[in-house]
Amino acid sequence: MSVTDPAIIARQARLSTLAKAPAARLCALFAAYASEQPTHALLRAPEIGTVMLRGRAGATGAPFNLGEMTVTRCAVRLASGAVGHGHVQGRDADAARTAALIDALCEDGQVAAIEAAILAPLRAEAAAHKQARATRAAATKVAFFTMVRGDNA
């Protein structure tokens, strides 16, 4: 389904950034942002589970089950009533709770501060990591040249 509401698009992007962040880095950035965890109730305690990944036959055809991946999820409600959802790849309960708290604080009007303190650094680090691999891959690109054939020389 395609989403057009800018608020939802922003939340989608934020949750995706949090899900992919290295757990230790996510928790460290949040600890630096909020010296102590905001008061919250757990709507869903951190829960480790899996998601079945699907591929497509021939990349474009019928979906098939490729295998599962570990995911941890958590949902919180702040005293203000703002609800946050956290999903992170892997099995880190603290990271899932942290992601949920960050989402809730964003819903609670702290978007700009969190964007600067947490989301922008995470995005920049992910981009740098991606770039470091992409530039190495680019260096292994073959530059074909044609040998001069004897009968043409």
Binding site: G49, T50, V51, M52, R54, G55, R56, E68, T70, R73
Partner: peptide
């Protein structure tokens, strides 16, 4: 582990 669901096709 519980299974939360299935991904969109990759």
């Amino acid at each position: 582990l519980p299974r939360f669901g299935a991904s969109n096709p990759i």
